[in-house]
Amino acid sequence: MLSRVAERLFWTARYLERAESLSRVIKTLSRLRMDVPRGTELPWTTLLAILGNHSEYRASGKAATETNIMKFMISEIETPTSILFSVNSARENARTTRGVLPTEVWECLNELYLFCKDNADRSVARKNRFKFLNELERRCQLLNGLMMLIQRRDHGYRFITLGHLIERIDFTLRVINTLSSAITERIESKPAFDSLIWASLLESLAARGSYRRSYGPLIEPDAAISFLVLEPQLPRSVAFCVRNIKKAYRPMKKKAAVMPSIDMLEQLLVKFNAFDMSDAAIREALEQVRLTASSISDISTKTWFMSES
């Protein structure tokens, strides 16, 4: 596997994962607006806070209205955090690796891109938004399923897996931390509705049913966070991702470069106990997990993707 190709496959996967995650979180916030009473809803700028691009948005001088922020998040191809940008980047990375991707995978990704390009603009308004996002997620899942079924289990596949998992940890933790601080910072506290926020977060990660089976139907913030971080059986939990990151690196020469960071991640998770920590301490601990996971991405770049001669 060429280093350059491995790198592009890794980024194809990261961008695909990001597009899907963006879609999920936009849906969650949009749905919450309809469920909770006025005055308790989370502002649209919460979306910007998740991606840490509040200041870029402010610099654009646009008012923080629903339409503007949706455009920013969905259809503006110049915005590096928009869905269209992510899908386009995934396709561009894949286009330069067409030699190793199965034809079906490429065609499926190309169709996903064409679908987004043709429909993203029209999907900003609430009327079409859900339809578009649902279809987008369906297509992402089709693509992931296809790769799982037909892609060769070589280093290429491992870097695709790593791209998904590393991006997933990053995104999930950003969402948890942002929601947690948004709830804390709100002037008017209505704890009765807070559980709705965590419920829809679980929902967006397809984890609600699984949560109920572990903790019962009542959704509490600490339990929800703990579940999303530590539940070993949940494919979107941080612990699950870390375990599979380790598995993906195992057959690689030079894996010694990332093992210290993975060990550190494991230790951080062992120490993590949402029930005995303050909200601020939880956020700090999770941020540390997130940064350690990102460092794995940087180490991979240096170890496997950069040229050597």
Partner: peptide, 16 residues
């Protein structure tokens, strides 16, 4: 890349 011995290598994940 090409070595001093005029051999051609490609850079792969597992090395040249």
């Amino acid at each position: 890349f090409v070595t001093k011995e005029h051999e051609v290598f490609m850079r792969t994940v597992d090395g040249p």
